[in-house]
Simulated scan of single mutants.
Amino acid sequence: MVALEGVAVGPGHPKGKAFAWMTPNGKGLIPVAAPLVGIHKTNWTERALMSLGMEQKPVPAKTVADWIAKRARTFLLGTKGPIVDTFLDPNCIFCHKFYEAAMPLVRKGDLRLRVTLVGFLKPSSADKAAAILLAKSPAKALAYNEAHFRVAVEEGGIRPIRHPHPAITGVVGANTGILSHTGALATPTIVYCKKPGDFVMSHGLDNYSAHYLRKLFHGIGSIDAVGGCTG
Rank of each mutant, 00 (worst) to 15 (best):
A18F: 15
R47N: 14
V7N: 02
G6M: 04
V32S: 11
G78M: 08
R107H: 15
G156D: 03
T74H: 07
A101Y: 00
I83E: 01
K136W: 01
A143K: 12
V172H: 06
H218A: 12
G28R: 15
T63D: 13
D206M: 07
A20T: 13
W67K: 05
W44F: 15
S125C: 09
P90H: 03
P90I: 07
V226N: 10
V171W: 00
G177R: 12
S125A: 05
M1R: 15
E46R: 14
P14F: 03
S222C: 08
V115H: 11
E46F: 09
P14V: 03
L133V: 03
Q56V: 14
T187Y: 01
S180E: 09
M50R: 15
L179W: 08
A143S: 11
H181M: 13
T23W: 15
M22L: 14
G6T: 13
L105Y: 08
A225Y: 06
V32T: 15
P160F: 02
L105D: 08
S125H: 05
R107Y: 14
S125Y: 09
L77R: 10
M103I: 09
A8Y: 13
I178N: 09
Y192E: 00
G219V: 10
S137M: 00
H96Q: 06
F217E: 00
C92V: 06
L113N: 09
K140N: 01
T189W: 03
R73S: 11
A69N: 12
S209K: 07
E55H: 15
G6K: 10
A184T: 02
D224Q: 05
I168Q: 01
A186G: 11
R47L: 14
H203L: 08
T187W: 00
V153R: 06
T187E: 01
A34S: 13
K57F: 14
P35L: 07
K57V: 11
T169G: 08
K128P: 00
A20W: 09
A69L: 08
G81C: 08
R214V: 03
T230P: 02
R159T: 00
T176E: 02
L216D: 09
G170W: 13
L133N: 04
F217P: 00
L52S: 12
F98M: 02
A225V: 06
F19A: 15
H13C: 14
H181V: 07
D224M: 07
I223D: 09
N207W: 07
L117M: 13
P14I: 00
C193V: 12
V9F: 12
L105S: 10
V7Y: 05
I223S: 04
G173A: 09
P138C: 01
G170M: 07
A152G: 04
V64M: 13
V172A: 02
L142W: 01
L213T: 04
D224F: 11
L142M: 10
G156Q: 04
A147G: 03
R214D: 08
L77S: 12
Y208C: 07
F149G: 04
V115W: 10
N91F: 06
P31I: 05
R112V: 00
K80R: 13
F94D: 12
F199E: 03
H211K: 15
M50P: 10
T169E: 05
V84Y: 05
A131N: 05
R73Y: 03
K17T: 07
P123W: 01
A167R: 15
